[in-house]
Design a protein around this nucleic acid. Structure first.
Length: 697
DNA sequence: GAGCACTGC
């Protein structure tokens, strides 16, 4: 690797900061530029804030194993840094520069932008890989964008990620499970591959902890200057963003009802502020529908006086594509668009034209209780980091305003600085099986950016053991454990697939696995009665899983028709996704030796295969129960069949569920009938341990 | 007779 600064030129100055990180002081602004493609694009590149740090970034990457880049939105870091690295030679000799993103859409968008800037065809020098789509060309692609989940999967074939010279982990501050696993593994890889460079891109608030995580033993720092290779202590570099100033307003007194407070704030913005669209952050569909209703009523009641000219639009992921697209349509002259949204507008979708943000201070967050093994969705206060991100949405086109529906005192003194990483709020079975597959034996001693609760780890190990995926030494079993690790789904679903091979119903089970791994195959609609009637057309006495098979068959028979879906209240996009996932699962099944076979109409073996994966979720109807109360075999927990299930009010004696949703009651979603004798057959150890004889009842 | 923040392989 050649040094990129010219001999004789002034060497960039480096200063250690008090935390042991390294800050760079730009001594001069580089003005190198080579003749790429179109002048206008080249000019745009030069105007990005990140450009004046080009030299600094390349210097730090050259001299440090890890560089933490704090880049605010609009800095251009994601599109430019990979190009700078390529220009400096990091992709020479067949090596590849990787840049990971948490979301598929971002991967595609950034990759095509970079290909355009470089004037190359997407899929050649610049490529991308996401699930179902591989537009990277081995031997040709120099810059590759990919989701962090895909990079983790790549590690199963190449644990040291040898083809990559630099790996940039973008949006690391979001702390998703896969980003955290990736960071932990990359830190391990660094010890084996000193030539590998990492760039961790993070928000201000997380930069110090990211740097501390990659800081290796402080004692040896003095010696490192004499060693060959890059410095082990991470560098930190800040790049300013391009957002406009956003003025923050707080309420003076805490509000009792944030939906009403949000509505009246929207109305007073409309009354008193100059034109510009508003974005309101609430927690979920209920809140949002209520707020839309209130605003619409207000608009009608007040006629011209106040809220005429308001276009009120809800935004959450449950909406159909068409309904979601409405929020992107340009606002007509003289009108004001008000988008009422969940967290989807905080990171996943970017709305242009927003000048006013109203922040309720809450969002729905997942929490996991490892003792009861139940994941819950709870309305909880957001973090300061989230609040800043939400406010930033108002400053994209011109200076904006953010109205926070909480007091300044609360923001300063009580709001947590950062959210709890997803790793510490989730069931960890998928995470643990993935680490095991990568040869990480000491799971409890793994060096995480944020350690999960030991109880959650132990629970995950227990579940994997009961599935026969791990043995007594907590090593992957052969072949079941290794096969299950290859299947990119929940290990319980993976186990169900593996059992279907022996039972001769893998074609059916693969369909069921695909359906279970998406949100819902039904459209979300307010016409509940019609939806229920449509469901009845497919309902099977065996339960929801078999009902899914009927829907899938119907969809195929219709020639995958969208009209057929519309007529039957089936979500067309969901079904297309089922087809895609099914294809992927079939390919994997062939590779790992699952026998592809249909059981035709024999649903008994299908139910047995479901039992083989989900025996831990077996429930028994309480004797003499008049309200459909079940008890779980494992924990004698009180549960009920969800009203959306085809078995609702049917109440068979023995059932297995896929998941629990907890509100005032615990409801079982996706339920199928079983014979209790299958339980001891499927998992003799598990039931011996839990209860001597579940059949005897 | 009730409800599903958001990603991802």
């Amino acid at each position: 690797m050649s040094q990129f600064w010219k001999p004789g030129a002034e060497k960039p100055r480096i200063l250690d900061d008090e935390e042991g990180g390294v800050l760079f002081l730009a001594s001069s602004i580089s003005s190198t530029s080579s003749g790429y493609g179109y002048a206008s694009i080249e000019k745009q590149r030069l105007r990005l804030p990140v450009y004046k740090y080009r030299t600094a970034i390349l210097y730090l990457v050259e001299t440090h194993a890890t560089t933490v880049i704090v880049g605010e939105t609009g800095s251009g870091k994601t599109t430019q840094i990979p190009q700078y690295l390529k220009e400096a030679g990091w992709a020479d000799g067949g090596r590849v520069i990787a840049c990971t993103q948490p979301r598929r859409l971002a991967v595609q968008a950034v990759a095509s932008r970079v290909a355009e800037e470089m004037g190359v065809k997407l899929g050649e020098e610049v490529g991308y890989t996401i699930r179902f789509e591989d537009l990277a060309n081995s031997g040709v692609t120099m810059i590759k964008f990919l989701t962090d989940g895909v990079l983790l999967r790549e590690m199963m074939d190449d644990p040291l990620l040898t083809k990559y010279s630099v790996i940039m982990v973008d949006e690391a501050h979001e702390r998703s499970i896969s980003t955290d696993i990736l960071l932990g593994l990359l830190k391990k890889i660094q010890r084996r591959r000193p030539e590998l460079r990492l760039i961790i891109s993070s928000a201000t608030i997380e930069a110090k902890s990211m740097s501390a995580f990659f800081q290796t033993s402080k004692r040896r720092r003095g010696l490192e200057a004499d060693e060959l290779g890059p410095r082990k202590d991470p560098a930190i570099l800040s790049v300013e963003g391009r957002g406009f100033n956003v003025q923050i307003h707080y309420v003076e007194e805490p509000v009792a009802d944030y939906v009403r407070a949000a509505v009246s704030t929207v109305l007073s913005i409309h009354d008193q502020e100059p034109p510009g669209d508003s974005l309101v952050f609430l927690t979920g569909q209920d809140d949002i529908d209520a707020a839309v209703q209130l605003l619409t009523e207000e608009a009608q009641a007040n006629g011209k006086k106040n809220s005429s000219g308001l276009i009120v639009l809800p935004l959450y992921s449950g909406l159909s594509r068409m309904e979601q697209d409405l929020v992107f349509s340009p606002t007509p002259r003289g009108k004001r668009k008000v988008v009422i949204s969940t967290n989807i507008a905080e990171t996943s979708l970017t709305l242009e034209g927003i000048v006013y943000v109203v922040d309720s201070g809450f969002s729905k967050q997942r929490f996991y209780n490892p003792i009861s093994d139940v994941e819950n969705l709870v309305v909880a206060p957001i973090s300061k980091a989230s609040a800043r991100q939400r406010a930033g949405r108002a400053g994209r086109i011109r200076p904006g305003k953010c109205y926070r529906l909480y007091t300044e005192e609360y923001f300063i003194n009580e709001m947590p600085a950062q959210g709890i990483p997803e790793m510490q709020r989730s069931n960890l079975v998928s995470c643990v099986i993935q680490l095991k597959a990568l040869g990480i034996d000491n799971i409890l001693g793994f060096d995480w950016p944020a350690s999960p609760a030991p109880e959650a780890m132990i629970r995950a190990l227990e579940v994997l053991y009961s599935l026969g995926v791990l043995d007594d030494d907590a090593k992957l079993t052969s072949p079941v454990g290794f096969q299950a690790a290859e299947i990119p789904l929940d290990p319980m679903i993976a186990k169900m697939m593996l059992s279907s091979s022996q039972l001769g119903c893998s074609e059916e089970i693969i369909t069921i696995a695909a359906v279970l791994s998406i949100q819902s195959i039904w459209v979300s609609t307010k016409a509940q009665k019609e939806l229920d009637e449509a469901k009845l057309r497919f309902a099977a006495v065996e339960g929801d899983h078999v009902t899914f098979l009927n829907v899938y068959q119907g969809f195929l028979r219709s020639g995958k028709s969208s009209q057929w879906c519309h007529k039957n209240f089936v979500n067309y996009h969901a079904m297309k996704k089922v087809i895609e996932i099914r294809e992927q699962l079939r390919r994997i099944a062939l590779r790992i030796g699952i026998v592809l076979k249909s059981c035709e109409r024999d649903m008994l073996v299908v139910r047995k295969a479901v039992t083989a994966g989900f025996f831990a979720n077996a429930c028994n109807l309480e004797a003499y129960s008049h309200n459909g109360m079940y008890k779980t075999v494992r924990g004698s927990q009180e549960v009920y069949i969800h009203p959306s299930s085809v078995l609702f009010r049917v109440n068979p004696k023995w059932v297995i569920y896929q998941s629990l949703v907890s509100t005032d009651r615990q409801y079982m979603r996706n339920v199928i009938t079983i014979d209790p004798s299958w339980l001891t057959e499927a998992a003799p150890h598990f039931f011996q341990h839990q209860r001597p004889d579940p059949i005897g009842r």
